[in-house]
Design a protein around this nucleic acid. Sequence first.
DNA 1: CCCTGATTCGC
DNA 2: GCGAATCAGG
Length: 232
Amino acid sequence: MSWTDERIDQLKGMWERGLTASQIADELGGVSRNAVIGKAHRLGLQSRPSPVKANETPKKAAAPTPRKPAPEPEAPRAAAPVAPAPAPVRAPAAPAPAATPAAPAATTPAGANDAPAPAPQPRIISVGPGGFLRQGPGDQQAPIPPAPPRRLVPAKPSAEIADKTSLLDLTERICKWPMGHPGEPDFHFCGEQVNPGFPYCVEHCGRAYQAQLPRGTRRPPPPLPFGGPRVR
DNA sequence: CCCTGATTCGC
DNA sequence: GCGAATCAGG
Protein backbone atom coordinates (compact mmCIF):
# COMPACT_ATOMS: atom_id res chain seq x y z
CA MET A 1 0.00 0.00 0.00
CA SER A 2 1.14 3.52 -0.68
CA TRP A 3 0.36 6.81 0.93
CA THR A 4 -2.18 8.36 -1.33
CA ASP A 5 -3.51 11.79 -0.56
CA GLU A 6 -6.66 10.24 0.69
CA ARG A 7 -4.92 7.86 3.00
CA ILE A 8 -2.73 10.64 4.30
CA ASP A 9 -5.84 12.63 4.98
CA GLN A 10 -7.33 9.79 6.91
CA LEU A 11 -4.14 9.39 8.85
CA LYS A 12 -4.07 13.04 9.78
CA GLY A 13 -7.66 13.02 10.83
CA MET A 14 -7.41 9.96 12.96
CA TRP A 15 -4.11 10.97 14.44
CA GLU A 16 -5.49 14.31 15.47
CA ARG A 17 -8.49 12.66 16.92
CA GLY A 18 -6.31 10.71 19.22
CA LEU A 19 -6.63 7.28 17.79
CA THR A 20 -3.63 5.16 18.49
CA ALA A 21 -1.23 4.29 15.76
CA SER A 22 -2.40 0.72 15.93
CA GLN A 23 -5.99 1.69 15.45
CA ILE A 24 -5.09 3.91 12.56
CA ALA A 25 -3.01 1.23 10.95
CA ASP A 26 -5.79 -1.24 11.37
CA GLU A 27 -8.32 1.18 9.99
CA LEU A 28 -6.30 2.12 6.97
CA GLY A 29 -5.24 -1.41 6.35
CA GLY A 30 -2.17 -2.52 4.55
CA VAL A 31 0.15 -0.67 6.83
CA SER A 32 1.80 -1.44 10.09
CA ARG A 33 1.63 0.55 13.24
CA ASN A 34 5.20 1.60 12.65
CA ALA A 35 4.39 2.74 9.19
CA VAL A 36 1.69 4.95 10.57
CA ILE A 37 3.94 6.43 13.20
CA GLY A 38 6.71 6.93 10.72
CA LYS A 39 4.40 8.65 8.31
CA ALA A 40 2.90 10.77 11.02
CA HIS A 41 6.31 12.03 11.94
CA ARG A 42 7.27 12.72 8.38
CA LEU A 43 4.10 14.71 8.10
CA GLY A 44 5.06 16.65 11.15
CA LEU A 45 2.21 15.35 13.23
CA GLN A 46 4.50 14.85 16.14
CA SER A 47 2.60 16.03 19.18
CA ARG A 48 0.64 13.67 21.31
CA PRO A 49 1.88 12.40 24.61
CA SER A 50 4.25 9.56 24.31
CA PRO A 51 4.70 7.18 27.16
CA VAL A 52 8.36 7.20 26.44
CA LYS A 53 8.93 10.84 25.79
CA ALA A 54 8.25 12.01 29.32
CA ASN A 55 11.74 13.13 30.21
CA GLU A 56 14.39 14.47 27.99
CA THR A 57 17.85 13.50 29.05
CA PRO A 58 20.30 16.13 27.89
CA LYS A 59 23.13 13.68 28.00
CA LYS A 60 23.17 10.80 25.63
CA ALA A 61 25.73 8.88 27.54
CA ALA A 62 23.89 5.63 27.26
CA ALA A 63 23.99 3.99 23.89
CA PRO A 64 20.43 4.57 22.79
CA THR A 65 20.91 3.05 19.43
CA PRO A 66 23.66 0.52 19.09
CA ARG A 67 22.39 -0.48 15.70
CA LYS A 68 25.18 1.50 14.19
CA PRO A 69 28.20 1.96 16.39
CA ALA A 70 29.36 5.33 15.21
CA PRO A 71 33.00 4.93 14.32
CA GLU A 72 33.39 8.67 14.35
CA PRO A 73 33.60 10.53 17.61
CA GLU A 74 31.11 12.74 15.88
CA ALA A 75 32.96 15.99 16.00
CA PRO A 76 30.73 18.46 14.15
CA ARG A 77 27.83 17.42 16.24
CA ALA A 78 25.89 20.49 17.15
CA ALA A 79 24.56 20.41 20.63
CA ALA A 80 20.90 19.64 20.56
CA PRO A 81 19.10 22.83 21.44
CA VAL A 82 16.74 21.56 24.02
CA ALA A 83 13.46 22.89 22.91
CA PRO A 84 11.77 24.31 25.96
CA ALA A 85 8.61 24.21 23.98
CA PRO A 86 5.95 22.91 26.30
CA ALA A 87 4.03 22.25 23.16
CA PRO A 88 0.36 23.11 23.29
CA VAL A 89 -0.79 19.86 24.60
CA ARG A 90 -4.04 19.18 22.97
CA ALA A 91 -6.44 18.25 25.66
CA PRO A 92 -7.46 14.82 24.54
CA ALA A 93 -10.63 13.11 25.43
CA ALA A 94 -10.40 14.10 29.02
CA PRO A 95 -12.92 12.05 30.88
CA ALA A 96 -15.04 14.82 32.25
CA PRO A 97 -15.98 14.03 35.79
CA ALA A 98 -19.42 15.45 35.22
CA ALA A 99 -20.07 15.12 38.88
CA THR A 100 -22.99 17.45 38.58
CA PRO A 101 -25.71 15.86 36.52
CA ALA A 102 -27.21 19.19 35.70
CA ALA A 103 -30.29 19.70 37.75
CA PRO A 104 -33.29 19.65 35.49
CA ALA A 105 -34.60 22.68 37.31
CA ALA A 106 -33.65 25.12 34.65
CA THR A 107 -35.07 23.08 31.85
CA THR A 108 -38.15 22.10 33.78
CA PRO A 109 -40.34 25.02 34.72
CA ALA A 110 -42.75 24.23 37.51
CA GLY A 111 -45.68 22.33 36.21
CA ALA A 112 -44.23 21.79 32.83
CA ASN A 113 -44.16 18.05 32.68
CA ASP A 114 -43.52 17.71 29.02
CA ALA A 115 -42.65 14.15 28.52
CA PRO A 116 -40.81 14.23 25.20
CA ALA A 117 -37.68 15.63 26.73
CA PRO A 118 -35.28 15.12 23.88
CA ALA A 119 -31.89 13.74 24.66
CA PRO A 120 -29.41 16.39 25.73
CA GLN A 121 -28.28 17.49 22.34
CA PRO A 122 -25.16 19.52 21.78
CA ARG A 123 -25.98 23.12 22.01
CA ILE A 124 -26.10 24.73 18.63
CA ILE A 125 -23.93 27.75 18.51
CA SER A 126 -25.02 28.85 15.11
CA VAL A 127 -26.21 27.39 11.96
CA GLY A 128 -24.38 27.37 8.70
CA PRO A 129 -25.85 28.11 5.34
CA GLY A 130 -26.78 24.54 4.87
CA GLY A 131 -28.26 24.11 8.26
CA PHE A 132 -25.37 22.24 9.80
CA LEU A 133 -23.80 23.09 13.06
CA ARG A 134 -21.09 25.59 13.10
CA GLN A 135 -18.64 26.93 15.58
CA GLY A 136 -19.40 29.88 17.71
CA PRO A 137 -17.51 33.06 17.00
CA GLY A 138 -15.42 32.93 20.13
CA ASP A 139 -14.99 29.25 19.93
CA GLN A 140 -11.82 28.61 18.13
CA GLN A 141 -11.34 25.00 18.77
CA ALA A 142 -10.17 23.30 15.66
CA PRO A 143 -13.19 21.97 13.90
CA ILE A 144 -13.26 18.28 13.71
CA PRO A 145 -12.25 17.70 10.15
CA PRO A 146 -13.52 15.16 7.80
CA ALA A 147 -15.38 12.31 8.36
CA PRO A 148 -15.84 9.64 10.79
CA PRO A 149 -17.12 6.77 8.79
CA ARG A 150 -19.29 5.02 11.28
CA ARG A 151 -20.48 1.60 10.58
CA LEU A 152 -24.01 2.46 9.66
CA VAL A 153 -24.82 -0.43 7.47
CA PRO A 154 -25.09 -3.77 9.18
CA ALA A 155 -23.55 -5.68 6.36
CA LYS A 156 -26.29 -6.69 4.08
CA PRO A 157 -26.41 -8.94 1.10
CA SER A 158 -24.71 -7.68 -1.99
CA ALA A 159 -28.05 -7.25 -3.69
CA GLU A 160 -28.77 -4.70 -1.06
CA ILE A 161 -26.07 -2.41 -2.30
CA ALA A 162 -26.74 -2.90 -5.93
CA ASP A 163 -28.09 0.61 -6.23
CA LYS A 164 -25.87 2.18 -3.63
CA THR A 165 -23.51 4.93 -4.55
CA SER A 166 -20.14 3.56 -5.47
CA LEU A 167 -16.85 5.29 -5.91
CA LEU A 168 -17.51 5.56 -9.58
CA ASP A 169 -20.73 7.37 -8.94
CA LEU A 170 -19.11 10.20 -7.09
CA THR A 171 -19.40 13.59 -8.65
CA GLU A 172 -18.91 17.05 -7.28
CA ARG A 173 -22.49 17.38 -6.28
CA ILE A 174 -23.17 14.17 -4.53
CA CYS A 175 -22.41 13.48 -0.91
CA LYS A 176 -19.19 11.57 -0.44
CA TRP A 177 -19.86 10.49 3.10
CA PRO A 178 -18.63 6.93 3.41
CA MET A 179 -21.01 4.31 4.65
CA GLY A 180 -19.28 1.37 6.17
CA HIS A 181 -15.64 0.57 5.70
CA PRO A 182 -13.76 0.61 2.44
CA GLY A 183 -13.10 -2.82 1.15
CA GLU A 184 -16.14 -4.32 2.68
CA PRO A 185 -18.85 -5.64 0.41
CA ASP A 186 -21.42 -3.14 1.61
CA PHE A 187 -19.21 -0.13 1.44
CA HIS A 188 -20.71 2.77 -0.46
CA PHE A 189 -21.23 6.48 -0.26
CA CYS A 190 -24.14 8.55 0.94
CA GLY A 191 -25.04 9.78 -2.51
CA GLU A 192 -27.33 12.60 -1.44
CA GLN A 193 -27.18 16.00 -3.05
CA VAL A 194 -24.37 17.92 -1.47
CA ASN A 195 -24.68 20.99 0.59
CA PRO A 196 -23.41 23.49 -1.98
CA GLY A 197 -19.80 24.23 -1.32
CA PHE A 198 -19.24 21.12 0.73
CA PRO A 199 -18.35 17.57 -0.08
CA TYR A 200 -21.25 16.24 1.92
CA CYS A 201 -24.98 16.57 2.05
CA VAL A 202 -26.57 18.77 4.66
CA GLU A 203 -27.04 15.95 7.07
CA HIS A 204 -23.49 14.78 6.87
CA CYS A 205 -22.11 18.27 6.97
CA GLY A 206 -23.70 18.33 10.36
CA ARG A 207 -21.60 15.39 11.31
CA ALA A 208 -18.45 16.46 9.60
CA TYR A 209 -18.44 19.95 11.03
CA GLN A 210 -19.42 19.82 14.63
CA ALA A 211 -19.84 22.71 16.94
CA GLN A 212 -17.52 22.68 19.83
CA LEU A 213 -19.53 22.59 22.99
CA PRO A 214 -19.13 25.24 25.64
CA ARG A 215 -16.78 24.43 28.41
CA GLY A 216 -18.19 22.00 30.84
CA THR A 217 -20.72 20.45 28.58
CA ARG A 218 -20.12 16.96 27.53
CA ARG A 219 -21.51 15.21 24.57
CA PRO A 220 -23.11 12.04 25.81
CA PRO A 221 -21.82 9.86 23.04
CA PRO A 222 -18.16 10.44 22.37
CA PRO A 223 -17.21 11.74 18.95
CA LEU A 224 -16.98 8.16 17.85
CA PRO A 225 -14.33 8.35 15.26
CA PHE A 226 -14.60 5.24 13.28
CA GLY A 227 -16.73 2.32 14.09
CA GLY A 228 -14.28 1.09 16.62
CA PRO A 229 -12.21 -1.95 16.08
CA ARG A 230 -12.85 -3.41 12.74
CA VAL A 231 -14.60 -6.70 12.74
CA ARG A 232 -12.60 -8.96 10.59
C1' DC B 1 3.76 -10.02 29.00
C1' DC B 2 0.74 -6.42 26.82
C1' DC B 3 0.34 -1.74 25.13
C1' DT B 4 2.06 2.95 23.61
C1' DG B 5 4.91 6.49 20.57
C1' DA B 6 9.93 7.81 19.20
C1' DT B 7 13.88 7.00 16.72
C1' DT B 8 17.16 5.17 13.68
C1' DC B 9 18.67 3.75 9.36
C1' DG B 10 18.87 0.35 5.40
C1' DC B 11 16.40 0.23 1.57
C1' DG C 1 9.99 8.55 1.39
C1' DC C 2 9.12 4.27 3.55
C1' DG C 3 8.83 1.14 7.43
C1' DA C 4 11.12 -2.80 10.22
C1' DA C 5 13.79 -2.95 14.07
C1' DT C 6 14.60 -1.18 18.10
C1' DC C 7 14.16 1.58 22.23
C1' DA C 8 11.77 2.90 26.25
C1' DG C 9 7.87 4.18 29.36
C1' DG C 10 3.20 2.62 31.20
